[in-house]
């Protein structure tokens, strides 16, 4: 293939990816419920709009821990004993469609419209 064809191919790939970036992440999250998933299972759901006072709690799977802080309207990973600290550096998640991900601990925090935990919305936070 000629060099020009490769440049066009890569340019097209870049444009499509950029378009999807804005499409998927440009708009905000649609709900106010923070669902916390570990190993694909939603372990806790918190309605951020109902939170009046900040609190922290720990999500643990036995060996690995993430300390999560919840404040009115937002949530973040305060501390984690993972090696890369990507989840801590992600900072506050409020109304973004971009989830907080802690790959080493298989933990994902997403803002969604409804509670996905088995026991529904967390009542401690109400």
């Amino acid at each position: 293939m000629r060099t020009r064809s490769w440049i066009i191919l890569i340019g097209a790939l870049l444009l499509v990816s950029l378009a999807f970036c804005f499409l998927l992440l440009g708009r905000g999250a649609s709900g106010t419920v923070a669902n916390i998933y570990q190993n694909g299972v939603c372990v806790r759901s918190i309605d951020l709009s109902a939170v009046t006072e900040s609190f922290t709690f720990t999500v643990s799977d036995g060996a690995r821990e993430n300390v999560i802080e919840v404040a009115p309207g937002r949530i973040r990973v305060l501390e984690a004993d993972c090696p890369d600290q990507v989840c801590v550096h992600a900072g506050w998640l409020a109304d973004s469609a971009a989830p907080i991900v802690c790959l080493p601990h298989r933990l994902v925090i997403r803002i969604e419209t409804s509670a996905k935990a088995a026991d529904g919305i967390d009542t401690v936070s109400q």
């Binding site: 990816s17 950029l18 998927l24 998933y37 694909g40 933990l107 994902v108």
Partner: peptide
């Protein structure tokens, strides 16, 4: 590994950063 397909929203970002 995470069992959470929702993280696919980051795929386009990873494509751009990869390029």
């Amino acid at each position: 590994v995470t069992g959470t397909p929702a993280i696919l929203v980051y795929l386009p970002v990873l494509m751009v950063s990869g390029i």
